[in-house]
């Protein structure tokens, strides 16, 4: 009998990466898949969670925090990212500030065709805005988050981390 090791992405991995990179604020709209991550973020005394009402607000709030010398991260789902096109353009790309956006990759699968159009259009959307992105699916991918932070700082542009694990560690 062969033991199967299920690889998951634990919320603690993201928290560790945020802390390592000096993150001060998470601007977010929670979704059903990231509830445990939300609870864990709320427990960190070094991290301020800023809930917003619509994803397009998140990049604007992040700009204000950046001007104030803070290190914000946007945490949203791919559906909300697509709604936020004008904010990504005007509040991040045009402003030229290094913003990491962690985006839940709803509908992502390595098992063939996805029936979810949210996934179908995610990467074409990112390519249209010429945004670099890193796919993170399990704990071994954690260092890729730091790579993404370094890419934002170097380029002074937004960089996206696509979280391709919807249903495992994030909603215990």
């Amino acid at each position: 009998m062969v033991d199967q090791q299920v690889q998951i992405l634990r919320p603690e991995t993201l928290i560790d990466e945020f802390k390592k990179n000096g993150v001060t604020h998470i601007i977010t709209i929670p979704d059903s898949e990231t509830n445990y991550l939300y609870e864990l973020m709320e427990q960190q005394d070094w991290l301020d969670v800023v809930p917003v009402s619509r994803e397009g607000e998140s990049m604007a709030v992040a700009l204000g925090l950046n001007v104030a010398g803070k290190v914000p991260v946007v945490l949203i789902q791919n559906t909300g990212m697509m709604e936020s096109g004008d904010s990504i353009r005007g509040q991040v790309l045009d402003a030229g500030f290094p913003l990491l956006m962690v985006v839940g990759y709803r509908g992502w699968t390595r098992k063939g065709h996805t029936p979810d159009s949210a996934a179908t259009y995610t990467e074409p959307f990112l390519n249209a805005f010429r945004l670099d992105y890193y796919l993170v699916e399990h704990d071994d991918d954690g260092p890729r988050i730091t790579e993404a932070f370094e890419a934002t700082r170097k380029s002074k542009r937004p960089v996206v981390v696509l979280v391709g694990d919807e249903y495992h560690g994030f909603n215990r």
Binding site: V61, G64, L65, V67, D86
Partner: peptide, 22 residues
């Protein structure tokens, strides 16, 4: 004096972020 506009209706959110950070 600060100007953080540039997207449709989002300057309010930007200034809110500034207030949180300061």
């Amino acid at each position: 004096d600060i100007s953080l506009g540039g997207s449709m209706g989002q300057s309010t959110a930007s200034i809110f972020g500034l207030a949180l950070g300061l």
